[in-house]
């Protein structure tokens, strides 16, 4: 690996790790189901960037783009279904606070 690419890789990697921390913190600290989904979105964004970066570094940008396009389509469907589930959780509890989901014990 040339030093140029190695430098690019290392500073992108640092930002991707920070983005992962951001999303994980959001999921861990929130009491709101919508916000948990937002945290999840941030995690998926970080993964997207990582895949594109990997494709760029190993010269397979085309493959990485094909993967990311499929990934984005899946992401939308996950968010739509999650939206429907959150809606029903709100109808049952009048709240989107997952602390109120205490009916089930892990």
């Amino acid at each position: 690996m040339s030093p140029d690419l190695a430098g690019l890789f290392s500073y992108f990697m640092i930002f991707i790790i920070l983005l992962f921390i951001c999303g994980a913190y959001c999921i861990a600290a929130t009491f709101n189901m919508v916000r948990a989904m937002i945290g999840l979105e941030l995690l998926i964004k970080a993964a997207t960037l990582l895949i594109i970066l990997a494709g760029y570094l190993c010269g397979r940008s085309a493959l990485a783009q094909a993967i990311v396009i499929t990934l984005i389509v899946i992401e939308i469907v996950v968010m739509v279904v999650a939206g429907g589930i959150i809606l029903w959780a709100f109808r049952h509890n009048e709240s989107i606070d997952p602390r109120k989901l205490s009916n089930l014990k892990g």
Binding site: A47, I51, A54, G55, C58, G59, R60, L63, I67, L71
Partner: peptide, 17 residues
């Protein structure tokens, strides 16, 4: 998300998945 991260690293090292 774990699996996708893994896919990215595999792509990086193997060049194909």
């Amino acid at each position: 998300v774990f699996m996708l991260t893994s896919v990215a690293f595999l792509l990086l090292t193997a060049g194909d998945i």
